[in-house]
């Protein structure tokens, strides 16, 4: 009787152990949820210097994370965090965020700048930043409704050379004045 009970107890604990051992590897949701403390639930950011990840394409997320990991893209915590993941983790995160709908922000923008930016983007940006920045060609990130302070910080990093501008972007940005760029950022921040 005692032996039998022990046997059952053992079987029970083996079952419990195997349940732990056989857990599936972290799912896209498991991986992406951990990001949301800083980037907002489902990647919709409420913090003006943190980008929304919702509706970013898989390619954009993977490209950004790989560049954070290698150090090619400058960062504070992102490089340290990216080193904790594999390329397939990045793809899983990208899969999750690409399925989330655009996070629409309400922020103060300058109407005149938005108007100017809207016309500038048609000539200079929209071949890659498609649909008013709601979509992006290849690994081009979604710009629509991102927080203005975030967009401004990234543009500063580009212009200081700390963040490397893609060649095509550098060509398009070159003829633009500081006022033009400011207007473009106001435009993208305003897109709903």
């Amino acid at each position: 009787m005692t032996m039998k009970l022990k046997g059952w107890a053992l079987a029970g604990s083996v079952l419990a152990m195997s349940a732990v051992a056989h857990a599936a590897p972290p799912s896209p949701t498991m991986l992406a949820n951990a990001c949301a403390g800083c980037h907002g639930t489902n990647g919709g950011s409420a913090g003006p210097t943190m980008p929304s990840l919702s509706s970013q394409s898989k390619a954009a997320v993977v490209d950004a994370m790989k560049k954070f990991k290698s150090g090619e893209r400058p960062s504070t915590v992102m490089g340290r965090l990216a080193k904790g993941y594999t390329d397939s983790d990045f793809e899983a995160m990208g899969e999750f965020f690409s399925k989330q709908k655009l996070h629409v922000t309400s922020q103060q923008v300058d109407a005149a700048k938005v108007k100017k930016g809207a016309s500038l983007q048609e000539e200079h940006c929209n071949r890659c930043h498609n649909e008013d920045g709601r979509e992006g060609k290849d690994e081009t990130p979604v710009m629509a409704s991102q927080w203005l302070p975030y967009l401004q910080m990234q543009m500063e990093l580009y212009q200081s050379g700390k963040r490397k501008m893609p060649e095509k972007m550098a060509e398009k940005v070159k003829p633009l004045s500081a006022g033009d760029i400011d207007a473009l950022l106001h435009f993208y921040a305003s897109v709903k």
């Binding site: 857990a23 972290p26 403390g37």
Partner: peptide
């Protein structure tokens, strides 16, 4: 079926009113 955990900690500490330092880590 259960899913293996994947977690993050990111924590900032202010040194002055304009300067902060951080620790960040990924857990499995």
């Amino acid at each position: 079926e259960l899913t293996d955990m994947s977690g993050i900690n990111t924590c900032y500490s202010y040194i002055t009113d304009k300067e902060a330092v951080s620790v960040a880590a990924v857990y499995a």
